[in-house]
């Protein structure tokens, strides 16, 4: 038996919608204030768009808050009667992005975001040719738990393919490092 309140997807969805709606409304209001610095000709279209955005986002936010308040009493009554059972997610549901994002723990999120941040910072500093090889090596070894041998071969092949395609064959500009210029 699973209490619905423990299901992150179901419990936080309405609250998240309210937060998103009001966040958008705040962004829109700030944008509207920004338009008063522009000449009227440049501001007409943006104001129409922004006012529409404010109306929709505030409208959704207010309606959702009202619904939550209205159902709060009923929800409390239901909770005292007993907990509801929620069917376990099917295999196809666990594949869905919504489920993966909702159920991944803070540790998994932190690790994933740190890996991405690492790749971006190293790319900015050393350029894509160095960072791609380094990221592949370290991510496969420590993030994916692959062997050193596999990680080394993978990163070498990736770097060579990258160099061949973008530097030697097509010469398409790629991110250069601040330090290396390569």
């Amino acid at each position: 038996m699973t209490n619905p309140s423990s299901s992150p997807s179901l419990n936080t969805s309405a609250r998240a919608d309210i937060v998103i709606a009001f966040t958008v409304a705040v962004v829109m209001v700030l944008a509207l204030i920004g338009t008063f610095e522009w000449p009227a000709k440049a501001a007409i279209f943006p104001r129409v768009v922004i006012v529409a955005g404010i109306v929709f986002s505030l409208g959704l936010g207010v309606v959702l808050v009202w619904k939550r308040l209205r159902h709060a009493t009923a929800h409390q009554r239901d909770a005292t009667v007993g907990s509801h059972s929620v069917p376990a997610p099917s295999d196809s549901q666990t594949d869905e992005a919504e489920y993966v994002f909702a159920t991944a723990g803070p540790r998994a999120w932190t690790k994933a975001l740190l890996w991405i941040a690492f790749f971006l910072v190293v790319t900015a500093v050393t350029g894509i040719f160095v960072s791609s090889g380094l990221f592949a090596l370290l991510y496969l070894r420590f993030g994916a738990g692959k062997s050193w041998r596999f990680s080394l071969i993978y990163s070498a092949v990736l770097s060579i393919c990258l160099l061949a395609m973008f530097r030697w064959l097509l010469y398409i500009p790629t991110p250069l490092g601040i330090l290396t210029g390569f």
């Binding site: 991405i116 790749f119 971006l120 790319t123 900015a124 894509i128 791609s132 990221f135 592949a136 991510y139 496969l140 993030g143 994916a144 692959k146 993978y154 990163s155 990736l158 990258l162 973008f166 398409i172 500009p173 790629t174 991110p175």
Partner: peptide, 24 residues
């Protein structure tokens, strides 16, 4: 396995977006 594809896919994302105006 997903993690095996990650380095190549992240690389494609970065290069793909960089080519828009060649700016970080």
């Amino acid at each position: 396995q997903g993690p095996v594809l990650i380095p190549a896919l992240v690389l494609l994302l970065v290069i793909g977006s960089y080519t828009a105006t060649n700016s970080f």
